[in-house]
Design a binder for these strands. Structure first.
Length: 637
RNA sequence: GCCGACGUAGCUCAAUUGGCAGAGCAACGGAUUUGUAAUCCGUAGGUUCGGGGUUCGAUUCCCCGCGUCGGCUCCA
């Protein structure tokens, strides 16, 4: 008898030999039907895996993240199978499950067309319906290489050559199709019921642009049709929120060839929003004890030589320009300037910490193919700041920065965070002692906030450990905006110091941090997060007063003036059009409040407010709506 | 940068096998004075991304360039 411990702590005893599927069956028929794989002593295995010792076991169903990944991985094999049937000349390479589905890279004589995708998907359906068993086979290294080489699958042979010795080489067979794979996989192709091929794209073998470009087919798969259609709906929803589309519709910004790719033009409505964002930022920083700097957009190339950017950041920098026979560099970062300000006088330990912030516009060279709306640009403004402090102040400064970060993100409607702490990489500057001390300070600051975090060991930059904060938007997508980065390098390179209590010169610690990251990108995220329906405090136009006929123009004008005088962004629409026409137009502009003015309103010194959901609040005195709007504006809801 | 798809009026899109480049919205002019998501009539609007080629004839086919979009880390 073998004894299997289930996740809930209970046990099942079964006579050997037994496989994972049999254990699932012993637990329940429903579970057995849903099972796609098992986890035995922490390791994922196929259902057919035979067990001949006691073990901790878990049955994996597609409802779990692991199960879903297996379904997707198996679907990628299904796709490769279909491709090999339709295009026998195609070589298979790799085909993993990824965040939203899966892909498989092929080497084929020509690119796949959208029509090919339709055919491949149809063939996948057919193979799934054949319900072929998916079975695992172990092979000797040489045998496996010969097997693939005999079939012209050179990529697979290359992969096998790289598998470390001692590791078993496993292949999975479904019908005529056999693929090198670690597994595990679903037990049969019939288990794959809901998938869709999304697009073809070029992708380099091993992601290296020196290698051959392969044809990558992306697809997605779910345990059932319902999951698939929910996912497709989400994609549609994301498309509706696309900031490039909304940016045009709401006339917020543009990016035009005449100026250049990746260079953003902020239109009046977008600029209003940016000013609101910046004003909020300034006020929060003032309250948190920051000073503000303004520094130039370019500098003598020597500055970038001293900072080291010329060595390790060159690829992202624009070429220098020549001024009076000297080379000048448009800035990719703000930090060297802040250091120059620091260095402009002798600093005492009593001066520290110094917290200096700047909305600094920087220019970075990005390859043309990666430019993407506001998300990936060549000129952008960082909400940058540098804190110079003593070692002993690291922890409290980091804690304060975290505070300000979360407070800022919450203000903009984000309240789900994911925090990442990245520690010392192999190659690094600074002593082990300072790394250890600093990393501990960062960890403590996070714990002090009672925040959960993940540690990325070795993921830090060579010049210091860092904390990244990711936010989750309204449709569940994650974005990294904030970053808090310690720097042991620049203070050294610029040889900055402060005089300590002991009268001796010490090296300060430098902290770089950005909360929103790039204002352009953050703005894009805000647009998508709110789908253009901005909260009142951010909306470029907060209310429009609109008339029924021109007999009400005077009153409407007066209302507009009164609201504007109170600091609200209010327009009046006196045009000779039907109300329904005007309402439609402003509703499409996603204006939060429409204030309708007609005979009755005029007579009573009132307006009839209509909220963004189309709800008519009825007659309301102008002072009352003013109060209400101011309230809403102040609450930032 | 590389692979693929795409590029038509300010915007969203049409235009058989190559045969006079169109519609709606927006703009402009006029009529309409209107009560909660589109009043009616009219006018104007184009180097079909740029350049070259094939052809009697090119938005359409071919080549080059530019731009946009989707990708190019997620290791069998």
């Amino acid at each position: 008898m073998l004894r299997f411990t289930l996740p809930d702590g209970s046990c099942k005893e079964l006579p050997a030999p037994v496989n994972v599927a049999a254990i699932a069956a012993a637990i329940g028929t429903g579970l057995a039907r849903a099972a796609v794989a098992g986890r035995v002593n922490g390791e994922l295995v196929d259902l057919e895996t035979r067990l001949d010792a006691d073990a901790a076991i878990e049955i994996i169903t597609p409802a779990t993240p692991d199960g879903l990944e297996i379904v997707r991985h198996s679907t990628s094999h299904l796709m490769a199978h279909a491709v090999k049937e339709l295009f026998p000349g195609a070589q298979v390479t790799i085909g993993p499950a990824v965040a939203d589905g899966f892909y498989y890279d092929f080497d084929y004589e020509r690119p796949f067309t959208p029509e090919d995708l339709v055919a491949i998907e149809a063939r996948m359906e057919e193979i799934a319906n054949r319900d072929l068993p998916v079975t695992r086979h172990l092979m000797e290294r040489q045998e496996a290489m010969d097997w693939f080489m005999a079939r012209g699958e050179r990529y697979k042979a290359e992969i096998i050559a790289e598998i470390p010795g001692g590791q078993p080489i496993s292949l999975y067979r479904q019908g005529e199709f056999m693929d090198l794979c670690r597994g595990p996989h679903v037990p049969s192709t019939g288990r794959l019921k809901a998938f869709k091929l999304m697009r073809v794209a070029g992708a380099y073998w091993r992601g290296d642009s020196r290698n051959k470009m392969l044809q990558r087919i992306y697809g997605t798969a779910f345990p059932d049709k319902k999951g698939l259609s929910a996912h497709l709906t989400l994609l549609e929803e994301a498309a509706k929120r696309d900031h490039r589309k909304l940016g045009k519709e709401l006339d917020l910004f543009s990016i035009q060839d005449d100026a250049g790719g990746g260079l953003v033009l902020w239109h009046p409505m977008g600029a209003r929003m940016r000013q609101t964002i910046e004003e909020q930022w300034r006020q929060a920083h003032r309250a948190a004890g920051y000073e503000f700097l303004f520094t130039p957009h370019m500098a003598n190339l020597d500055l970038w030589r001293t900072s080291g950017h010329l060595d390790f950041y060159r690829e992202s920098m624009f070429n220098p320009m020549t001024v009076d026979e000297q080379s000048y560099q448009i800035r990719p970062m703000n930090c060297p300037f802040h250091i120059l300000v620091y260095r402009s006088q002798i600093r005492s330990h009593r001066d520290l910490p110094l917290r200096w912030a700047e909305l600094g516009t920087v220019y970075r060279y990005e390859m043309s193919g990666v430019l993407h709306g506001l998300f990936r640009v060549r000129g952008f403004t960082q909400d940058d700041a540098h804190i110079f402090c003593r070692e002993s102040q690291i922890e409290s400064e980091i804690a304060a920065i975290l505070d300000l970060t979360l407070q800022t993100l919450r203000t903009f409607g984000f309240d789900r965070f994911e925090i990442n702490l990245s520690t010392r990489p192999e190659k690094a500057v600074g002593s082990d002692a300072i790394w250890e001390k600093a990393t501990l300070a960062l960890r403590n600051a996070i714990l002090h906030h009672g925040l959960e975090y993940r540690e990325d060991a070795g993921g830090g930059a060579f010049y210091g450990p860092k904390i990244d904060v990711k936010i989750t938007d309204a449709i569940g997508r994650k974005w990294q905006c904030s970053t808090i980065q310690l720097d042991f390098n620049l203070p050294e390179r610029f040889d900055i110091g402060y005089i300590g209590e002991d009268g001796v010169r010490h090296r300060p610690i430098m902290i770089h941090r950005a909360l929103m990251g790039s204002l352009e990108r953050f703005f894009g995220i805000l647009i998508e997060h709110y789908a253009g329906h901005f909260p009142l405090w951010l909306a470029p136009v907060q209310a429009v007063v609109l008339t029924i006929t021109e007999a009400h123009n005077d009153w409407a004008t007066e209302v507009g003036q009164k609201l504007r005088a109170a600091g609200l962004r209010v327009e009046t629409d006196l045009r000779n059009h039907k109300v329904s026409y005007k309402i439609r137009e402003h509703a499409m502009r996603k204006i939060p409040w429409l204030l309708i003015v007609g005979e009755r309103e005029q007579a009573e010194g009132a307006v009839s407010p209509r909220d963004r959901h189309g709800k008519d609040l009825g007659l309301m005195h102008v002072d009352e709506i003013l109060h209400r709007l101011l309230q809403e504006n102040a609450n930032r809801t």
